[in-house]
Amino acid sequence: MPDHDAIYKSEAETYDLLISKQPSLYDVIESIQPVEGLDILDLGAGSGRLTRVLAPKAKSILAIDASEAMLQVTADKLQEAGLLNWATRVADHRDLPVLDNSYDLIVSGWSICYLGSSGDPNWKENIHQVMAEIKRVLRPGGSAIIFENFGTGSTVPSPPSFLRAYFDLLEKEYGMSHTWIRTDYQFDSLEEAERLSRFFFGDDLAQQVIREGWIQLPECAGVWWLRFPPTSRIPRF
């Protein structure tokens, strides 16, 4: 499996090309929480997959990520679009450098999972810290929406085994609603499909792309959301 940390630090442009092959998630977010006029925090923004589609409607948007290189791609794209209502900041999900009750909506795409892998002995505490931070910075009545991998190369949900306990935690301990959607990659050619799938997902999936002749690489994404009312409480451990 490719080293994603290294990709995020040194190959942000290629990563951005990969995710540009997926559909916009604006309508999914809008169906859960209308975004116009909101102050929005994009947690683990990466190269701006969500930031760039939400910024035109938001009052303000802050993109946070651990990778400065990824945030530079985000900044470049927002500047090209002529938008002025945004900022970027390098930070850890578990210690957000923002004030209490400062955002109406928090979104996070394919990011919190890196702290929730069962291969990390501290995964559960990591998730508790992230959720406590989300609750801290949301305004009363604010919403959180999380997107995660629910099966790449599959037309039906097939979540990675090492993330299933994290997903269960979101629903059972934090009461988040859940559904799944298709987020297929639509490549320009089989060569591009093979090259970009190998770049991020590794040799096994790339070989499957070749065998299946997939110019459209199927993928499922899980979606979790929750509105935090004024009386909501995040469990403390």
Rank of each mutant, 00 (worst) to 15 (best):
P2M: 04
H4Q: 02
D5S: 08
K9N: 15
S10I: 06
A12P: 10
A12M: 10
T14C: 08
T14E: 11
T14Q: 14
L17M: 08
L18S: 02
L18R: 15
Q22G: 00
P23K: 03
E30I: 00
S31V: 06
Q33M: 10
Q33I: 07
Q33L: 06
L38Y: 01
I40D: 04
G44V: 05
T51G: 11
V53P: 12
L62T: 14
L62S: 02
A63C: 06
I64Q: 14
D65F: 00
T74C: 15
D76T: 00
G82A: 09
G82N: 08
L83F: 11
N85G: 05
W86C: 01
A91S: 15
H93M: 04
D95E: 15
P97D: 11
D100H: 14
N101R: 15
N101P: 07
Y103F: 14
Y103Q: 12
Y103K: 07
I106S: 06
G109P: 11
I112Y: 05
S118D: 15
E125A: 15
N126G: 00
N126T: 00
V130Q: 10
E133G: 07
I134Y: 13
R136H: 09
V137E: 12
V137Y: 10
V137F: 10
L138S: 08
L138Y: 09
P140Q: 12
P140H: 05
G142D: 06
F147N: 04
F147R: 01
F147E: 01
T152Y: 10
P157E: 09
P157K: 02
P157H: 05
P159R: 02
L169G: 02
Y174L: 03
Y174C: 02
G175Y: 13
M176P: 09
S177M: 09
T179K: 15
I181M: 06
R182S: 13
Y185I: 03
Y185V: 05
Q186D: 12
Q186T: 14
D188W: 11
S189V: 10
E191P: 07
L196H: 01
S197P: 05
S197W: 05
R198N: 02
A206L: 08
V209G: 12
I210Q: 15
I210W: 07
E212H: 12
G213T: 03
W214I: 11
W214R: 08
C220M: 01
G222Q: 05
W225N: 07
W225I: 06
W225C: 07
F228V: 03
P229G: 03
P235G: 06
P235E: 11
R236K: 12
R236G: 05
